[in-house]
Design a protein around this nucleic acid. Structure first.
Length: 571
RNA sequence: GGGCCUGUAGCUCAAUUGGUUAGAGCAGAGCGCUCAUAACGCUUUGGUUGGGGGUUCGAGUCCCUCCGGGCCUACCA
């Protein structure tokens, strides 16, 4: 038994996330957490909402709410959806928590003490009408390169040229449209990441087993051009963690907050503290997950995220932890994902294109989505959601292969022997062969899960389901029953037990269906470490019930209607 | 512009890191079964591995080049 700390990239607060966001971090993290728990490991699985930054302020303003209220409300919305998808977080925290404020300020002080913080004065665009400094991308204007009129201050989306806000012709605020812009001086704290470059590079080099996607992005940032750049870790915003606080080793930072990418990863730690507080546990209980000197030395820490998050998790956050000089646990494995596209294009929050988490649950239960998304997780390249593929995957894998297996076995038993595991008969060669095949398949499934090869794991799980159908076809209990009811009883006894085994094995992917099966079979057998024993767990006479249809099929009419509904123009 | 990834059967993806005849699932075709959600099982069609060149006893895999797709490029998060 090992100890596993698992974090999912924390979703940003400004709205309901789409299926691409879900499959890129929270869902695979949940799969892994559930698997490890199923294997008896001690797991702490954390996620939170990322609540600071300009977009949160703007979204709140648009909603006509104070930003704190908006965030609290949206946290509730996201927490409900997480629950709806059966994301089994031990705690779903908030980056705006007291714990994160304390910890973020603490780490900033430690970095300062280590000589890794520098104050720099820079010039930023200030919008008088908006009463705020504007991030580059919130300034719009005409591109000096191609004449595109809605170029952003950081880059022109039309000609892809990188820009400086002052390059724009007729610049205006993207928030209010105001052209009353001035360049003002402002002071910010910089994290001197560049001085940690060699240590970070050495640390990345140790990670031989990380996905190429992860290490290649890290190395690009480490070595490209002038190498790793220092990073501004404060911003001129109202909403966030105050930079000026009691005991702060700098001055004149009133009205500024830490940059959200500085405080968001720290929330991984703070979330553990929130978890402990919520459970009424002492600090030592969360510190044993995060402080190597206080028990975390034997923890294996795995992070899940989309590829856009990789630089912050491979470089910025480790720089914060290493630079602090304290004994913080560093990540052991980063599982990063490509993007899920939607039906020939990208998911688009602004255009309402694609399926969002709330939409999805309105259409079908979580398991349907979990299975399709995980079995096609964009591990090696961007992948695509199409309604046809979704319908095909759900109907074939869940309804036909697994659901129908459960149905045919339980209904056959009910009609011939009643709703209890039948007695009589014995296993023969075919049963021994099945057990050998199941054991071999289980080993492959476990290996895939251990290495977080999600598509492969789904494939292997499905293959285990198929073995049940193959066996039933060959053993043909309906034929055996006519001449040798005991033989049929032995077959069905095994098949009923196999359903209980499937419940355990499938639980990480489809937890609700697994619970339905456990309830129907009245089983709580746990992970089938020994297949031979597991298939005898439900003894003759053990009562069960025939479950309701485990998975229904998606009709062509539904598929077409949904495809039309989510093509764009949400709401 | 620079960097990275990628192109394999109609579709979605594999291929133990250079090693027999490139494999699965879906879709298609045929057969079987009748317990079951018209489900299941068996068999089967289908590939000049994007094009071209090279290295090698041997290339889907390595190199060059061309063509196509995608991502990142540090002030959105």
């Amino acid at each position: 038994m090992a100890r596993h700390l698992i974090t999912s990239a924390i979703p940003y607060i400004n709205g309901v996330k789409h299926l691409g966001n879900l499959v890129g971090s929270q869902l695979p993290a949940d799969l892994y957490a559930r698997y490890l728990r199923g294997r008896g490991h001690e797991v702490l699985f954390l996620c939170a909402t990322d609540e600071h930054g300009t977009p949160a302020e703007l979204a709140a303003a648009k909603a006509g709410e104070p930003v704190a209220d908006y965030c609290a409300r949206m946290h509730g919305v996201q927490a409900d959806l997480a629950q709806g998808f059966r994301l089994s977080f031990d705690h779903f925290g908030r980056s705006s928590s007291d714990q994160n404020r304390h910890l973020t300020q603490h780490l900033a002080v430690k970095l300062h003490e280590a000589g890794l913080i520098e104050e720099r004065t820079e010039r930023q665009v200030y919008s008088v009408a908006d009463g705020r400094f504007l991030p580059d991308r919130y300034i719009e204007g005409t591109c000096p390169n191609c004449g595109y009129e809605k170029a952003r201050g950081d880059q022109c989306e039309n000609c892809t040229k990188q820009l400086d806000p002052t390059d724009l012709i007729n610049p205006r605020s993207a928030i209010s449209g105001s052209t009353e812009l001035e360049v003002r001086e402002t002071k910010h704290l910089y994290l001197l990441q560049s001085t940690l470059r060699d240590r970070l590079a050495a640390w990345i080099d140790e990670q031989a087993d990380w996905p190429v996607l992860t290490t290649s992005i890290a190395k690009k940032w480490l070595f490209d051009g002038d190498g790793l750049q220092d990073r501004g870790i404060t911003r001129d915003l109202d909403w966030g963690i105050p930079v000026q606080f009691e005991g702060a080793p700098w001055s004149g930072m009133e009205g500024k907050v830490f940059y959200v990418w500085f405080d968001a990863p720290i929330e991984y730690i703070a979330c553990a503290a929130e978890w402990a507080a919520a459970q009424g546990k002492p600090d030592a209980d969360w510190e044993r997950w995060w402080r190597t000197g206080r028990g975390a030395a034997d923890v294996r820490y795995t992070q899940f995220m989309g590829k856009d998050n990789v630089p912050f998790h491979t470089l910025s956050f480790p720089a914060t932890l290493i630079g602090s000089g304290e004994d913080w646990k560093l990540v052991d494995y980063i599982k990063s994902f490509n993007y899920l596209n939607y039906d020939g294009g990208q998911f688009s929050t602004s255009q309402g294109r694609g399926v969002f988490m709330d939409d999805a649950l309105e259409l079908l239960p979580a398991d349907y989505w979990r299975w399709w998304l995980l079995s096609r997780a964009p591990e090696n390249q961007d992948s695509e959601f199409t309604w046809e593929s979704f319908q095909g995957g759900v109907n074939k894998d869940l309804a036909d292969v697994l659901g129908n297996f459960v149905s045919r076995v339980t209904k056959f038993c009910r009609s011939r022997f009643g709703e209890a595991v039948p007695e009589g008969g014995a296993w023969g060669d075919r049963e021994r062969q099945l057990i050998a095949d199941l054991s071999a398949g289980l080993a492959r499934y476990e290996a895939a899960m251990e290495s977080i090869a999600i598509r492969r794991a789904a494939q292997e799980l499905r293959a285990l389901w198929v073995l049940g159908n193959e066996y039933l076809q060959e053993a043909a209990p309906w034929a055996a029953y006519k001449e040798d009811p005991d033989r049929a009883a032995a077959i069905i006894r095994l098949a009923l037990n196999l359903i209980a085994v499937y419940a355990e094995l499938s639980a990480p992917f489809i937890p609700d269906a697994a619970d339905t099966l456990r309830a129907a079979m009245k089983s709580k057998t746990g992970w089938p470490a020994d297949m031979h024993a597991a298939l005898r767990a439900l003894p003759p006479g053990h009562a069960f019930t025939v479950p309701e249809m485990l998975f229904r099929k998606i009709t062509d009419e539904e598929r077409d209607a949904w495809q039309a509904r989510f093509a764009g123009g949400r709401g």
